[in-house]
Amino acid sequence: MSAAVSVKGLTKRFGGFTAVDRVSFALQENRIYGLLGRNGAGKTTLMHLLTAQLFPTDGEIRVFGEEPYENSRVLSRICFVKESQKYPDNFRVADVLAAAGYFHENWDREYAMELAEQFRLPLKRRIKKLSRGLFSAVGVVVGLASRAPLTIFDEPYAGMDAVARNLFYKLLMEDFVAHPRTILLSTHLIDEASALLEHVLLIDRGRLLLDEEADAVRGRAYAVAGMASKVREFAAGRRVIHWDAFGALASASIIGSLDEETKAAAAALGLEAAPVSLQQLIVHLTGEKSE
């Protein structure tokens, strides 16, 4: 399978601030990728670079094998749903959906109408007057109904309640199965979306920390907790990525698999051992102070 997106040494600087720092990765076709990271890590900047809405300071971007800048062959096959999309003041929901239809080749109007109903979107109301959750729903409907070969969602569910978010995940999965395409979903709600992701990219302070299959990252680390002295003893010689101390008690997160041998070793020292979830691992990787 050819790469839908290929990025090499991509860098973006705003004056003295480096938002994206020599990032390189490739996205294969027809997979769901998660772009994870804290607020301000560079996710949004990266997505704007991929869609030629921002210009790189350095590095190379190829989407569907070509440079996206001013390239209608590429741009018409991308749909980018932003958290903070601006709409013309006078546009109603129906106008946005119609406009989306003009610009996206694979637009499915019937499907868009079905989705609008599921999200309870008032077609005749002005976009300006929608609640935050409904506002986001408009973006989600556009993103799904565009059926664009590369669909990028940037935290698309700001303000959406849990019911609407679950609806989004469900619809995304169903449509992805029926109409496979390359999806890049950026989110900081990792635990919710995690099961949908086939592959994760973790960005922190502009750098790419992880670029792996999601399943490869699950179960990569475990945590032990108990008396601080015992934890220290256990952790000696192991790769500790996180350490919490509460007086005489402590817990450590360690890279490694929690096999029977390790469990026994922990039990022998009277420590509790448990695997670390994908979300927790990412929190540990991005929460540490800089070295």
């Binding site: 741009l75 018409s76 749909c79 932003k82 601006k86 709409y87 406009a99």
Partner: peptide, 9 residues
């Protein structure tokens, strides 16, 4: 901004 967001050149 709307048009750019929709992938218009």
């Amino acid at each position: 901004p709307f048009a750019l967001g929709m992938g218009v050149r």
